[in-house]
């Protein structure tokens, strides 16, 4: 371990952390509005990554050579399809349990996670698949830091998507409806808000963000595997909890923090320890600051 590596590790951590933040957004938005940890989120991330492979190969067959345009199409189409899948999941696995004890949808979310992961495994034969090279390989060098253009692009896209989602929730009419439902679902319905539809939309947006994260992951690392949703999903969950679950900017803060911390860990520990480090962070957060970095306990007046 040498301190000279530190700046490079921070950069690596921020790049991967922005991806975690993107996936964490789905956990945090769904939790914020219906108080459910949607564990299917990790599987949606993986489904999105695999859809990206399919879309890129369809585009290549169609003769589209512009890599940046290809990336945009892949993100948009994979997000739309995965968002639609999230709608189906919401309809089948959660909506029928709306009045059930909270443990019931938690269990179905885990079941959905394993179901989707197994489908991917069966369909792909558990073979890792490769992403095409989107941008030039030659990395930029700045003092001790080298940064691949792809990595920079990924971090930028991820952060832009998160800021866009934050503005959507804060500024738009639908975003206000989401925040109203998060506070009091019955009162929101009295305002004329179709709460069932807004809740479904929240699931769809979470799924779409996870898929975008999956495609960006594939483009950055070149390979996607049938079990990437397990680690990705759980790291993103940790990021959501660390940032303050239910808090949209918290997803970004949590993602970047987890990314940088796990990146530091690789400096002193062998790579296999990465998961242990991430879950160590989760345990420490839950023990000492369960509301997360940006989360706060809001006392409501009766």
């Amino acid at each position: 371990m040498s301190l000279a590596e530190l700046p490079q590790q921070i950069v690596n951590g921020l790049v991967v952390g922005s991806l975690y933040g993107l996936i964490a957004l789905g956990y945090t938005m769904v939790y914020g509005i219906v108080r459910l940890i949607n564990f299917a989120q990790g599987a949606l991330y993986e489904v999105g990554a695999y859809l990206g492979v399919v879309i890129f190969s369809v585009l290549a067959d169609a003769g589209l050579r512009n890599p940046v345009l290809g990336l945009v199409v892949a993100i948009v189409v994979a997000s739309a399809l995965t968002g639609a899948l999230a709608l189906v999941v919401e309809r089948v696995a959660y909506r029928p349990l709306r009045h059930a004890p909270p443990l019931a949808p938690l269990v179905t979310s885990l079941a959905t996670f394993f179901l989707l992961m197994s489908i991917v495994q069966v369909v792909t034969g558990a073979q890792p698949l490769n992403y095409p090279q989107v941008l030039a390989v030659t990395p930029w060098t700045l003092g001790p830091i080298t940064l691949a253009p792809t990595a920079a692009l990924i971090a930028v896209v991820a952060i832009v998507l998160m800021v866009a989602m934050h503005l959507f929730v804060q500024r738009t009419r639908t975003g206000k409806a989401m925040r109203a439902i998060a506070v009091n679902r019955d009162a929101a319905a009295l305002m004329g808000i179709n709460t069932t539809r807004v809740v479904a939309l929240t699931f769809a947006l979470g799924g779409a963000m996870a898929a975008a994260g999956g495609v960006l992951f594939g483009v950055n690392y070149g390979t996607v595997t049938y079990n990437m949703g397990e680690f990705g999903g759980l790291v993103a969950f940790t990021a959501a909890v660390l940032g303050g679950i239910g808090n949209v900017p918290g997803a970004l803060v949590g993602g970047l923090t987890v990314g940088v911390l796990s990146s530091f860990a690789t400096m002193v520990l062998p790579n296999q320890w990465q998961e242990a480090v991430v879950f160590g962070i989760l345990i420490v957060v839950l023990a000492f600051r369960p509301q997360g970095i940006l989360g706060e306990r809001v006392a409501e007046r009766a």
């Binding site: 925040r179 109203a180 506070v183 009091n184 019955d186 009295l190 409501e300």
Partner: peptide
């Protein structure tokens, strides 16, 4: 429309 019992304003908004 209904003004519900206990007011139920959206406190964090």
């Amino acid at each position: 429309t209904l003004v519900p019992e206990g007011r139920q304003v959206f406190g964090p908004l």
